[in-house]
C-alpha cells in the first residue's frame, strides 16, 4: 500500500436527484500536497466522505494507496487519517483518554497507546489541557486535538476537510505549520479541502477547483494563474458613480470587467500596453481614478473567473 489516490469518474447522486458530485476524476501521487478548492456546497465534503469510506459512491472507481475503497474499506482505514469538518469528540473524555482510546482501536497495546498520547499531546501543544474533559476546550484546542487523533497511527495519507475554517489566525498558522511539516518531512500525502485561496496557494503543490460538483480547473497555483493569462488592472475611484461610468466607457477595452462599489477591475492580456489608451479614454470623460494598479492575476482572479464561466454556461 502506497500513498497515492486515484479517482475515476466519481458520481454521487442523493435521493431526489440531488447531484452532489458529477463525474470527478483526479490522481494524487505519493507525498504530494493536493488541494481541493471550492465554494460552500461545491461537493468537497461529499468527495472526502466517499474517499474515506464513510459514504458509498453512486458510480466511479476509487483507489486509496492502490486499494479499492468499495472492496476493502477496512484496509483503507488502517492507512488513512481523516479530520472531518465537523470535529467529533466525546466531550466527557479528556484529550489524553481520547488519544489513548484511538490508539487502542488502531492496534496499539495499552503501554504503546500511553506513549503515543504523550508524544501527540506535546506535538499539538495540549500538555496543559491533557487531563481536562475536552468539552471544556476552546475551538482551536478542539481542532488541534482532532488533528492529534487523526495522526495517532501515522497514516500515509491525510484527508483534511477545511481544517482551519473558523479558526483565529494563530491557530490557523499552527495547523498550517504542522501539516506542512508532515508533508515535507514525513512524506505524508495530503488531500486538503478549503474555501480559502490563500490556504491552497500557500500549501498545495497542486490545486483542483471544484464548483457545482465538477472540477473546473486543475494545476499548480502558478499554472492556474498562467492559464488565466490575464493581467488585472484595478482602478479605484472617489465615488461609486464615477466607477459605474468608467465601467461603461471601458466595457470594450478589456476582455472581462468587474465592478463593485467604487472599484473597477479589468482583465486584459497585456496590462501595461493597454494603459495609455485606457487613461486617455477616461480623460476624455473627465474621469480620474484615485489609484490605478496593474498586477498579474491572483488565485482569487482564477477562482472568480472559472466559477463565473461556469455560471454563464449554466
Amino acid at each position: 500500500m502506497d500513498g497515492s489516490i486515484s479517482v475515476q469518474d466519481l458520481v454521487k447522486t442523493y435521493k431526489g436527484d440531488v447531484k452532489a458530485v458529477q463525474g470527478v476524476s483526479f490522481e494524487v501521487a505519493e507525498g504530494e500536497f493536493f488541494a481541493f478548492l471550492g465554494p460552500n456546497g461545491a461537493g468537497k465534503s461529499t468527495t472526502v466522505q466517499i474517499l474515506t469510506t464513510l459514504v458509498k459512491p453512486t458510480t466511479g472507481s476509487i483507489r486509496i494507496g492502490g486499494v479499492d475503497v468499495g472492496e476493502e474499506p477496512e484496509r483503507v482505514r488502517w492507512n488513512i487519517g481523516v479530520a472531518l469538518q465537523e470535529t467529533g469528540i466525546d466531550p466527557v473524555l479528556t484529550g489524553r483518554e481520547l488519544i489513548e482510546m484511538q490508539a487502542r482501536l488502531f492496534g496499539f497495546t495499552k503501554k504503546e497507546a500511553k506513549i503515543r498520547a504523550v508524544e501527540l499531546l506535546a506535538l499539538v501543544d495540549l500538555n496543559d489541557a491533557a487531563d481536562r474533559p475536552c468539552g471544556k476546550y476552546s475551538g482551536g484546542m478542539r481542532r488541534r486535538l482532532d488533528l492529534a487523533l487523526t495522526l495517532v497511527h501515522k497514516p500515509k495519507i491525510l484527508f483534511l476537510d477545511e481544517p482551519t475554517t473558523g479558526l483565529d489566525p494563530s491557530n490557523r498558522k499552527a495547523i498550517w505549520k504542522e501539516i506542512k511539516r508532515l508533508n515535507k518531512e514525513e512524506g505524508t500525502t495530503i488531500f486538503l479541502t478549503t474555501q480559502y485561496l490563500e490556504e491552497a496557494d500557500q500549501l498545495a503543490d497542486r490545486i483542483s477547483i471544484i464548483n457545482q460538483g465538477k472540477i473546473v480547473a486543475s494545476g499548480s497555483a502558478e499554472e492556474l494563474k498562467r492559464t488565466l493569462g490575464f493581467d488585472a488592472i484595478q482602478l479605484l475611484f472617489e465615488l461609486d458613480e464615477e466607477a459605474e461610468q468608467a465601467g461603461q466607457i471601458l466595457v470594450d477595452v478589456g476582455e472581462n470587467i468587474e465592478r463593485s462599489k467604487n472599484e473597477v477591475t479589468l482583465y486584459t492580456e497585456n496590462g501595461t500596453k493597454l494603459l495609455p489608451d485606457l487613461v486617455r479614454k477616461l480623460d476624455e470623460h473627465n474621469l480620474s481614478p484615485k489609484t490605478l494598479n496593474v498586477k498579474p492575476p491572483s488565485l482569487d482572479d482564477v477562482f472568480i473567473n472559472v466559477t463565473n464561466e461556469q455560471k454563464e454556461r449554466a
Binding site: 482505514r77 488502517w78 488513512i80 481523516v82 472531518l84 470535529t87 467529533g88 484511538q102 482501536l105 487523533l149
Partner: peptide, 16 residues
C-alpha cells in the same frame, strides 16, 4: 449523542 456530535463518524473511520 455520538451521532449528533460527530464522534460516531470518527469511530467509523477507525478499523475497529
Amino acid at each position: 449523542k455520538d451521532l449528533e456530535n460527530g464522534y460516531f463518524s470518527r469511530l467509523l473511520l477507525t478499523p475497529s
